[in-house]
Design a protein around this nucleic acid. Structure first.
Lengths: 342, 342
DNA sequence: CTGAAAGCGCTTACAG
DNA sequence: CTGAAAGCGCTTACAG
């Protein structure tokens, strides 16, 4: 049994039983005792350093670990090392498939680096950052729009923070994102190449996608089509599409700022009996898995999500924080499916 | 500065600077020194116990906390308390909207109880459980099918485990789920009430939903329609629907075992020019947010997800593990939208 | 190659 | 009402 069973901690559960029954209660002292070595040697063995261990000793330690079912206590290790091996992810919701996919990618990439993922959804960004910092995460990824309070919380947290796919990065916060302007231009230019002259936009005003849309039209000598600005959700896309259908001169194509809005827009068009792409062609921005299973399948400017996540983790775990704070933009690809008329 | 700046840990960063700059390096000893009290009193103040603190003293401590920007170290607290205040969630993918929603709910409910959420996606269940246990989580929720190795890992982990929405619970593992049999019966009965006599099933063989489907048909004196078994994904639903369309006597209705499969099936029907619900009516199982934005909107047997999550956390955090291990079933509701013909 | 010991930042039983 | 001190389970500089 654990020789340290002392005063603190919850009282020992009544029933006896083999120590093996609960690996959480076996400590390195138990292992050391069974192997007939010091606790230091147990550490050296398990961590492959910083000292060498004689092969025979090592074998005895490993044997003791096995028979006791010993599992190192990550909390104690974290306290001693000053590093938890945990990273935080702040996201509005993972119910949205785009963020769900992003979360999967982050978990996978973090896991490959030996890091565990603490997820915070909903609520206030600043509060999420503070809570995560209080948990001693080694760094955090923020996949949400950041207000001034969020930025202040990030800077005050003393924890490395990287914004992921943000529209704008507040002063002093590192960021890796997508070239929305360039992606939008590619999408709209593609629609123009299909022969469209009245190309609408569903998305928010004054963003980079809106600028890309406008500039692509201008470059082709076309007038700006109507713009419908609603929330970034299916519901918002639905409402925006209905709004577009009331236009006196109905657009023949739409560039939609997100997959989710596109799904909502598709519903509105279906309901109204407007065929996609025959009567209205469509290209979306994002390209999450959702976009391949709509009807018709969505053509989309697809974010290089994996690359984005890897870069973000690189920035987070890079030893020396770079100066000036890096703001990186990756270039998205156009995936042609059916909604554009291809 | 921190009076404990000793040998271990990463070397102190070169540049000097105010202690306030990095709250992570301020310890309770700094606070105690500034407030002119012992570290115990800082704890009593911050934790509201276990001892009372004189109002004036308390004010001084709080003031010191504020000026130093002190934030308690959760890792140290966890080590001392033997409890991290973290729960784990094991899920195959959060990219799937159903699991994304579930994850949102779990995070929200856990947060309300002061627990942080560690998420593991993908890979092997048993490994996910071991990794989470190694992180000293206070408990974990598993939202994945569990094989024997997973069950063994769960039992060996020494950590409370609750299966959430599992088809079957292995021996000795607590579980809270949905009455799939009952839900399926409700769905199929509804389709029968719409006048359908040839009702197909997309889902897996020998599950409770399949049994509910078969029994509902039998109860109405109808023969079993065709069954198409494919994976639980959009792709699987797509393939299953295409399979159904090759039937000599095409069914006039389908009960689909999951939203995701239903989305894929919808795509297959659209491609084939088969109108839903006119030519094939459809009711799905799950009722995640995804189902409201398909075309036509999906009628679905909807899981009481929030209730499920709350119960699961209750079981996880209940002081005394109950014997026998609880296996709870909640009853789902039928949400009528358009795909059923309503 | 191995071990004794200090210390990471907390909490709390014990004593005043 | 307040404080000195032990101890949670690790890691590692230091000494042998």
């Amino acid at each position: 049994m654990n020789p340290h069973a002392g005063s603190p901690g919850p009282t020992q559960p009544a029933g006896a039983g083999r120590a093996e029954a609960n690996p959480a209660r076996v400590t390195r002292a138990d292992v050391a005792a069974l192997a007939g070595v010091s606790t230091a040697v147990v550490s050296y063995t398990l961590n492959d350093g910083p000292k060498n261990v004689a092969p025979a000793t090592r074998a005895r330690v490993l044997e003791a670990v096995r028979t006791l079912g010993y599992r190192p206590n990550a909390t104690a290790r974290a306290l001693r090392l000053g590093s938890t091996g945990q990273v935080g992810l702040v996201v509005a919701t993972v119910g949205n498939p785009y963020f769900g996919e992003l979360t999967d990618q982050v978990e996978h990439a973090a896991g490959a680096r030996g890091l565990a993922l603490l997820v915070r959804t909903g609520g206030d960004v600043a509060e999420a950052i503070e809570r995560l910092a209080a948990r001693q995460v080694d760094g955090m990824l923020i996949a949400r729009p950041m207000d001034a309070r969020g930025a202040a919380a990030a800077n005050a947290s003393g924890v490395p923070v990287v914004l992921i796919n943000a529209a704008t990065a507040p002063e002093g916060v590192a960021s890796v994102g997508v070239d929305r302007y360039g992606g939008a231009r590619v999408a709209v230019t593609h629609l123009i190449e299909h022969g469209h002259e009245r190309v609408a936009f569903i998305g928010d005003t004054a963003g980079n996608r809106q600028r890309g849309w406008a500039d692509a039209l201008a470059a082709a000598g076309l007038a700006e089509g109507p713009l419908a600005s609603q929330s970034y959700s299916r519901e918002g896309g639905y409402r925006a599409a209905r709004q577009l259908l009331t236009e006196p001169e109905r657009p023949t194509a739409v560039f939609v700022a997100s997959d989710e809005q596109a799904v909502g827009a598709l519903l509105a068009f279906h309901e109204a009996g407007v065929a996609v792409p025959e009567e209205i062609a469509m290209v979306a921005f994002d390209g999450s898995a959702a976009s391949a299973y709509t009807w018709p399948p969505l053509s989309a400017v697809t974010q290089p999500m994996e690359q984005m996540v890897q870069r973000a983790l690189d920035l987070l775990t890079s030893a020396a924080p770079e100066q000036p704070v890096p703001v990186e933009l990756l270039v998205p690809d156009l995936v042609r499916r059916r909604s554009c008329g291809c």
